[in-house]
Design a binder for these strands. Structure first.
Lengths: 343, 343
DNA sequence: AAGAAATGAGCAAACGTTTGCCAGCATCGC
DNA sequence: GCGATGCTGGCAAACGTTTGCTCATTTCTT
């Protein structure tokens, strides 16, 4: 059941049917009515691939994330999808697990489907893999890569704002031995968060003890391991700031196992503010980076680039702010703030 | 840069290029080599929409879930996607939030993209909305709807097995006042779980106190509310079995607020075994329903139906077993098991 | 050695739309 | 009343593939 069938039954040409369906205003309302009736009656749905083929527009955006099972991402997906649908776009989703091979095949599949743009929400991926997309002049949007380039936008996260708030909050609660568990440091974003921590500490005259800065993996397991390392280290922190909420959950888990009470014995702050953060016990004080806003920015970046006639020579940069949200996992440092000895 | 370009440069016909790319064995290896070289050199990627148009196969499966932000679903999506890619399928994902309108537009979009099949992993959706898909003879797979029909498969979840284990586990720990927080009862699957609970109780001669069976919403918030109702009720449970893990997390949250210790004062069991269940504090004893397995079953159901020449008149039914996994949130009933009075 | 069968490659017709161009007709200005 | 000007709607050519046929060439059969 195609457009010709409709045309025949409505006694018009296929051109008119096409124009009717696309709501092109030049068609006589009476004819349009005839067409719509037939469309209705037959339950006709236009074939998107034919449309895409001739119009050269697939109406698909690619969305690359690192792991859908990481609670940080579903919200991004949700919002991105919702906006996409509103704009009559479909989204092609892949989680690459930060595996270059999967990344590569994902890019290939996207090109084959002729995506009109792709959002790479993976927080620091080897850009080499995206060469093919650049070649084909597909608009892209990254988060946290260097300066934007023609046709590729960048969303810069203002880590400093939120992390500085977190550090000062901790300082206000008289914490001095503040630990930081970073993400995997080969990710630019992880490095940036760490730097933000370091400079926030310096700013208020607290020296960041080297042994209190350890690397995690942005996972619960990583948090458990990292906090274990901290506990085994020479000085025990009274507070720990984590590079993401999953890591913080790992810390909480490990603390639970070791009989360390949060927030009585230890304050912990997360990063991201995933929805779960508010339901964890105790609810997690964390630095919010709005996933919804991120998704919105990314989609708009793509759309904007698409309707720009000449690509701006420099590309556009967007900024997303972060800020602290207070909940239950931080408290005034206990005792005199002296280092409790390990047993 | 299309297939004609390749053909010209390799001095063959487009037909040969097409056959080469599709690895049709009748083409002379020498020609094939020439073709591949040009393909390589030019970085040619075939246009999927053109392919789909002429071949009549979109190589897309629809995947409908209720809410991607519900931690139960990402794993399904992940596994489903992975298998799909292996089979050179793309997936078109939508979360409907159980909203009929969104469901409707989702179905429409899927038909327009000419999906070859759709998996409805939504645990009980009004089937009316899928009429259009049935009309077009698109294979479908449901979970927990009635008997399978031609072209639509059904995955039946064997709730009884796991829930019976859970109830007996609780009974073995001397619990008598066992509460049950169901899902929203308009969902068939929620109803089925409740029935499984009731019959499991009956089986071991425990009467299920009516005031101990309350309805939740399959969310944390619902769990909080439901457990609140339980606490306000005439008899306090010593254990509560939840219709999903989110609900259980709500119960844990509320218990935390009320100063009720888990598992010391209250045992709680979840359902689903989402990954988070093992990281919650204390780790949640729960009935596992493997999301990976579910995804696998669904994909295979679709694929099988697709390569069946004549649709089996009856449709196929698959079964997914559930079973209890023991963790930290259950314990021998405290005290004498007598009802502690509310204060 | 000659005809039959098998093999391999090309021609061209689809697939279901959109859209540039043209023609028919009505309207308008004078 | 007649030519010029606008509107509408139709014709047909794309879009980039796949694939049924056909035909030339090679290999087999006897």
């Amino acid at each position: 059941m195609d457009i010709r069938e409709i045309a025949k039954r409505a006694r018009v040409s296929t051109a008119t049917v096409s124009r009717t369906i696309n709501r092109i205003p030049t068609v006589n309302p009476q004819l349009a009515k005839r067409v719509w009736n037939v469309v209705e009656e037959l339950g006709y749905y236009p074939n998107t691939q034919a449309r895409a083929l001739v119009s050269g527009r697939s109406r698909i955006f690619g969305l690359i994330i690192s792991e859908i099972t990481n609670p940080f991402f579903p919200e991004i997906v949700q919002v991105f999808e919702r906006i996409a649908v509103q704009h009559h776009y479909e989204i092609m989703l892949t989680s690459t697990g930060n595996d270059p091979t999967r990344m590569e095949t994902a890019v290939r599949r996207m090109i084959e489907r002729r995506v009109e743009g792709v959002a790479i929400m993976t927080f620091g991926m080897e850009e080499v893999l995206l060469e093919d997309l650049k070649l084909r002049k597909v608009p892209m949007v990254f988060v946290d890569v260097g300066p934007a380039r023609p046709r590729v936008s960048n969303i810069r996260i203002d880590y400093l704002h939120g992390i500085r708030q977190a550090v000062q909050h901790l300082a206000a609660l008289r914490h001095q031995r503040i630990a930081f568990i970073s993400g995997p440091l080969h990710l630019k974003s992880a490095e940036a968060r760490k730097q933000a921590f370091l400079s926030s500490m310096a700013e208020i005259g607290l020296e960041a003890d080297r042994t209190l800065v350890v690397e995690g993996t942005h996972t619960i397991e990583g948090g458990i391991a990292a906090f274990g390392k901290l506990l085994d280290g020479p000085t025990r922190p009274t507070a720990v700031l984590c590079s993401n909420d999953m890591t913080a959950m790992g810390v909480m888990r490990k603390a639970y196992e070791e009989g360390i009470q949060i927030p009585a014995d230890l304050s912990v702050i997360g990063f991201d503010d995933i929805r779960l953060a508010q339901f964890v016990l105790p609810a997690l004080t964390t630095v919010q980076m709005s996933q919804a806003e991120l998704a919105r920015l990314a989609f708009n970046a793509l759309l904007t680039e698409l309707q720009r006639e000449a690509p701006s020579p420099t590309g556009t940069e967007y900024v997303l702010k972060t800020h602290l949200v207070l909940r239950e996992s931080t408290r005034l440092v206990s005792g005199n703030g002296e280092s409790p000895r390990k047993n």
